[in-house]
Amino acid sequence: MELQITWFVLWAVLWAVYFMLDGFVLGTGFLSGILAKNDTEKRLLINSVGPVWDGNEVWLITAGGATFAAFPTTYALMFSYMYTALLLLLFSLIVRGVAFEFRGKIEGEQWKGAWDRAIMISSFLPALLFGVAFGNIFKGLPMDAGGHHGGLLSLLNPYGILTGLLFVCLFAVHGALYASLKTVGDLSKRAFELAKMLWIPLLLVALLFLGATAYSTKLYDNYLAAPYLFLIPAIAVLALVAVQAYMIANKPLKAFSASCVTILFVVFTGVTGLFPNLIPSSLDPAYSLTIYNSSSSQYTLTIMTVVAFIFVPIVIAYKIWVYRIFRAPVTEQDLLENKEAY
């Protein structure tokens, strides 16, 4: 397989895994205000993501680093063309991480209330903005020989916003299911009911997205040229249906797993349609950034492939170990016993 294609697949996998893992942290974060009725419940939710949020966020750093190393031109233009959106994203991720760490450091309603609001906003914005950014990548950016002809407002077009909503809904269901799995008793039940309820708008937005994609993007061209590829969106849709089926059958772990598959395959659906583009130009295909015209040299791609095939399996191995250690739900007893808890 050509190295550019290997890296295109890796690029897609890194983003998809990032959304699958940070998706539930973001979802739990922005739902915390709705779900939690008091300080203890808020702490339970924050501590349910506590041991893993930082490690999950590194998938974003890695996705960014991989874009830089494998497709430097795409990295340069994608990040500078979407400057303001990325800036808001950065600010949100900065505030979210700090909020987890600082919230419990001082006892006081105002202090905690401020960080609670910070967690909600700084979890909601990335969900929305990642969706808007990827929606615009699917659609293509207005770029040609003169550079980029757009700004933050041009990113907020209907298709971009729709994709943003899709991400918000996906992460909301994902986060609610995670919260339900990682807590016990009443809080867990409420989270489970919320996930069930949120699934309905998710389904509607997802269907709307699949339809609008035909109208606003050229993603389906690849599928029409090779119809067997429709398997990918089919898996995404089936997994989405399975989420609700498992919830009705009262199997939260299976529902959560199905939600993981849904997020992975939503990303794969979009990225498969992009191939071989990384960012299409909506003005003139000659200025699209493809995996060929924006990639690193064969030498660099070879080195990076070796690096990836050594380290990514190691990372996955110890991450699985960590998820096993923290597989039990967080209880009030845990909060009392562990003074280091958030």
Partner: peptide, 24 residues
Amino acid sequence: GAPLAIEATAAFFLESVFIGVWIF
């Protein structure tokens, strides 16, 4: 880009994953 990507995969994961284990 190469050392930055290697930094993320080889080093950031290590510190970020295990800091969670250490705290909790």
